[in-house]
């Protein structure tokens, strides 16, 4: 079923919208959640939350890119749960690795003055990603939005894992420079 048709079901308050959403994107979102949380059960819990949230948000929202919309909701929910579980010393998977990678992108010390709001950072990253080449952008997003392991990205894009790693490294270096230049 096309995304537009699924969204029409949401607008019609037809519960088949949930069925179709789960059928089409449940696996993808659960995969993303599992990469963040390291647990299938936790990912499913998040996905349930996301489904409910989607049901409540649509309408009035009408996402133009439904897959991206769901994945974004999913990763936000999973990251929130990750932080909660991390405080309890649970969870992990790709998140620890990704956080370690991103540490190198930070240009300022972690003090109050240097902190930039998440919204501002988000806007900077949104602009930064536009500066990347298409290939680099896809690799970057698959790693840091979909949280896919390097190996999986390589397989998905039919390229070598080395190329993925090199691309990510370059992108992170560029992001570090970009954030350094953008931050006040």
């Amino acid at each position: 079923m096309e995304d537009s048709q699924i969204i029409e079901l949401y607008f019609a308050r037809d519960e088949r919208a949930l069925t179709e959403t789960d059928r089409k994107y449940g696996g993808l979102c659960c995969s993303t959640g599992r990469q963040i949380l390291g647990s299938r059960e936790d990912a499913e819990e998040c996905w349930n939350d996301v489904m409910l949230k989607t049901w409540n948000k649509i309408p009035p929202e009408k996402p133009l890119y439904f897959a991206a919309y769901l994945v974004t909701l999913m990763r936000n929910a999973a990251l929130t749960l990750y932080e909660k579980l991390h405080a309890e010393k649970r969870g992990g998977a790709q998140t620890a690795l990704v956080l370690e990678e991103l540490e190198n992108c930070l240009t300022a010390p972690d003090d109050v003055e240097a902190q930039v709001s998440e919204a501002e950072t988000g806007e900077m990253i949104r602009r930064f990603v536009k500066t990347l080449s298409e290939d680099a952008r896809n690799i970057f997003i698959l790693r840091y939005v979909y949280m896919m392991p390097v190996k999986d990205i390589a397989e998905r894009l039919s390229i070598g894992a080395s190329k993925v790693k090199v691309s990510l490294h370059r992108s992170r270096a560029a992001l570090r420079d970009y954030l350094g230049g953008e931050q006040p």
């Binding site: 993808l28 990763r75 956080l99 972690d110």
Partner: peptide, 24 residues
């Protein structure tokens, strides 16, 4: 800024770019 903030901020990436990566 913390790495987690950075990671969370990735959600602000343009949905069209996220969708494009999804298709690629």
């Amino acid at each position: 800024m913390k790495a987690m903030t950075l990671l969370r901020a990735m959600s602000a990436i343009d949905p069209s770019d996220i969708e494009a990566a999804y298709r690629a």
